[in-house]
Amino acid sequence: MKDQTTTTSDIAGIMLKATNLSHRVDLADDTLTILQGVNLEIKRAESVAIVGRSGSGKTTLLGLLAGLDTPSEGSVELDGATISSLSEDDRARLRAQRVGFVFQSFQLLPALSAIENVMLPLELGGHENPEAKAKDLLVRVGLGERLHHTPRQLSGGEQQRVAIARAFAADPIVLFADEPTGNLDNHTGQAISDLLMALNREQGTTLVMVTHDEHLAARCKRQLHIEAGELSEPATQNAPQAESIA
């Protein structure tokens, strides 16, 4: 499905690159440093897990890499575009075309049915036949019978399947996932991570995931540890990309 992308990725190699990334938040009488001098490179179709304790800065890093926020210092390049210097609207356009998201709390719009939630990014991206594609994706995540149910009528696991279908709807080249199994029980979480990994492989998407779940993290090709805003890659890991370590 993504033959063309795969071909170019072999040539260009780097999908996501963070250079000297820092993020600080001004408080009433102090400045809080959340990220400090993070350098990172992620290749095309690679899957990377960012793990760390609560408050270590991993969600902030994910937000910066996805262009949801801008860093205090440093730059982020996504597929060759320096997103940290783009305007908010340009970043939104880029997200619509190339980025997909899966969240811990699903983030489905409660007033829309399953299929409408999946159609939303397709419509925003100006897709030709959003309904057919949304339906196809929901069938693939096993919800072909529940197209017109609203999030309230779906279980947590089902809601996350809808969210995954939505994430892959616009054929993203990068998928960001924030604790995708964090709100689910072990069994359901396992099923969701299977689905996520399978689709990721099938679509050839680059996957960047923040998680506490060690099993899930272990299924990624690389694992990055973050502590007190600084990134490290465990040496024990089979890590051929030494240049990606800060």
Partner: peptide, 12 residues
């Protein structure tokens, strides 16, 4: 926030 994440501009 979600619509923005999914790519809707401020204008939209």
């Amino acid at each position: 926030a979600l619509l923005k994440t999914l790519g809707l501009s401020s204008h939209g």
